[in-house]
Structures are given as C-alpha cells and as structure tokens.
Design a protein around this nucleic acid. Sequence first.
DNA 1: TAGGATTGCAA
DNA 2: TATTGCAATCCTA
Length: 491
Amino acid sequence: MAQFYDTMLAQYIKNPGQRWLWLDSIAEREFEYKMISFDQITAKKTLNFEEVDLPQAAIYSWEDVYMTHKLYQNQKQNPYITQELKTDWILKSIEFPLMKVLSKMEMTWIKIERDILKWLGMQLESAIKELEIEIFSLAWENFNINSPKQVWEILFVKLWYPTAKKTKTWFSVNAEVLEQLAKDYPIASKIVEYRHYSKLKSTYVEWLLSVATQDDRIHTSYNQTIASTWRLSSTNPNLQNIPTGDGIAWKIRKAFIVDSAGDLLVAFDYSQVEVRLLAIMSGDENLLKAFKEGRDIHQVTAEFIFKTTEITSTQRKFAKAVNFWVIYGISPFWLTKMIDISQKEAREYIDAFYENYPKVREFYDATIASCKKNSYVETLFGRRRYIPSINDKNKMLASSAEREAINMPIQWSSADIIKIAMIRIDNFLEKGNFKSTMLLQVHDELVFNIVVNEYSQLVVEIPKIMESILKDAPIELKVDSGEWKNWKECK
DNA sequence: TAGGATTGCAA
DNA sequence: TATTGCAATCCTA
C-alpha cells in the first residue's frame, strides 16, 4: 500500500472541536507564522495563479510545502499522536484509508428522477398557495408567512392570542409554540403546515433540482474534518438530512433512483447500534442476554419497568423513550416532555432501568469518575475527548458535561464502526471486481447501487462485513437490509 | 452584500 | 432542560 499521510486529518483527530484546520490557521497558531494568503498573491483573485510573478508564486508554493512538512514533523513528535493512545492506529487504519473511499463515493454520482421532483414541486406549490389564502383570510391581512417577526405580530399583537411566549432573544413562534396554539386557533396549524411545505419545496425539491447535472445526477461532498464527533458531514447538497417522514416528505426519496435499468438501490442500516454498544461496553448481562435471544429491546425494557409481559403500545413507547434517555443522557425533565408523565414517574422508570441493567449504571459511574479524574473520555477505539468542564463549579455546566461524558463513548464509537465497515466493503468490492457502487453514508446507513447479477452475493456479504466489525464482542451488531428500486422504498 | 437569528430537516 | 450537522429565509448593519 502506498504510503500517505494527511496533516489536516491528524490535526482534526487531535482535536475535532477545533474550527480552523486550514494550513494557514494552524501555522499561525502552532508556529506563529503568518502565511501569504491566496488573496494576497492574486490581488484579491483579480489574477489567475498563472499570472502571478514567478518569484512570488514560488514563495507562496514553498510556504505550503514547507509548513506542511513542518507540521508533519511536529505531529510525529506530538505525544498525542502515538501508538500508546491508538491515535496513530486510528489515522492509519481508519481516517487515511477512508479518504480514498470517500473520494470514490464523491465521484460516483447518484441519479435522480427530475420529473418526480418537478411534479412534487408543483404539488407543493399549489398546497402552499391554498394555505396562503386561508392564512391571509384568518389573519384579515396579507403578510409574509416566512417571517417569524411578522407571524409574531399577527398572532400576538394583532389577534391578541395568548402570548405563549417562549423566549430566547425574543418571542419564539416555532412549530412547538404554534402547535400549542393550534388547539384553539386554526391559523396556527395552517402556518405550521405552510412552513412544512415550503421547507420541503425550497430546501429539498428546488435545491436538489438546482444541484443536479444535465444528465440528472447529483453528488455530495463528504467532509471528514468538520464534525466535533468525528462523524462525517455532507454538503452541496446535504444528503444526510433528506426527509423520512410519512406525508409528502417521503416522496422526495422516491426521486433517488438506480443508475441504470435493472439495477437495485439497497440500503443497509445498523439496527440500534447505540444500545448494542451500550451492552458491549458495559457488559451488562441482562442487556446482552436480550440481544443474544434476538428480542425487541424496547419490549424487554418495558417488561422490566412495568413488571409484566403484557406490554401495551404506550408502555413500549415509554420504554423506548427511557432507552433513549439512557443513551443520550437527557434529564428526567426532558423525558416528561417527550412522553406525558410526571417527573416522579420518570424517575421511577429510570430507576427501574438501572435496577435491571445494573452494569450500565456501573459503567456510567466509572466513566464519569474517570472523566472527573482525567478530564477525558475515550471511545471504544481509543479516540480521546477532553471534557474539562466536568469539574466546573457551575453545576449546569458540570452536569451537562456528565451527560456528554456518558453519551460520547457510546454514540461516537458508532462513527468508527461504520467508517471501518466502509473501508472493508470498498476493499471487498474492489478485490472482487464488482460493478456495484457505494453511494451514500448517512451516519448508520450505507446506500449502494447494486447491479442485478451481483445482488444475491452482495446482499449477504455486505451485512456480514458490517456486522462483524467488533471481532471479540459478546454479541454481533445487526444490519437491516432489503431490495428496492428507489431510496424511498428502502425504509 | 454579509452575517446573525430563527426555523426545521436528518442521524 | 440531549448532541452533531446543513441550509433557507428574513432582516439588520
């Protein structure tokens, strides 16, 4: 394997929260060296680089090379990037190889069906028009519904509706506030509906159409050094936030189609990675047992909490929220907000959870204690994140740091798992000379364009690779998959 | 015209 | 009173 190294990725892995990772920012920060900027040398881009005086261009280029090398030397001596901390391993085994996989994915364009989007755009357009008329008549005047300020004026100043004021810097009129009002005032629900449709129209339908090429293909850029969680992010367009909802929203996914007739679009997604990781990392017997028996984890938690095997759908919903709480570390207050229960009940449910998954509690206590002592937590793969605020005198800050400390090792380990899976799958496809291609990554989901005669093999092999990332774990990960003609049907 | 504030979509 | 992202729109500076 060819040797390669990336100073930006190394810098990022050291501190994913750092915002400015461009070479000139790092040079200034680490070496107090101010590099010549591109703007400077091209007189604010009025010149092409070829037109720049050769001596100047040479110095500019020399700086790039020199500083990169200097940074590389610096990183090699940095105690953080050593074998001991596994950072070196993560760079060589995950981040660097992933670069190649991502570049391939960026060059492989996903196809869309313009007509579906255009048709959808028209549907949305007429729905928006109708709602606009209704809203204006309910408000007794025309105004800009997209302007929060004007909505506020109409609802609370002109119409004197109860000031359900939820302030940040001003009065909020977001969906949550409006839905409260909607019980008594139809205009509020109309505005919510209006916003929903116009969101879909401008952010998805129109945006996708505008970034699509002549031959109806779009591609996204994956950023490997943006997220403070070491996850990927996607831009131009962002394909990681395409709606999944049930209404008109899901029709957007219908527009993502196969490359050529006969192919299949297949999505493989990790099922409940976080809870499985919690089981693996805490070693909790009851949690592990539930997974070994292939049981529905929310059902199992519900049985623990409500001490019966006859679980209603509401009880399952509650249990699901409790599982959610534990993984994300949200407060009991939030739990009462998500499901309609008292704080006392929320406490009881949470206590019941810990009672029945005792090692989860131990794991959390140990994680928090170690974070308090060392100011950092680590993921399964040894990525280290410093959370000094855990020892802050400010109680709010400290407790939010505690939540972060228990949430991070679980949630962020999954970012590595899928990255490793992507590298292995790419290897597998390359070695076997497969024509099928990896198209998208959406945090815990991978989408492929699969050529029909490779289907039977890949639909077995890809999940197999994804599920076996953690070799010595007591339980395997689980991947759901299926065959489809467009992305919408993947769900 | 740039950028903050608000809003809402995903995992 | 969970986290991380990207993008649209409005509106002020």
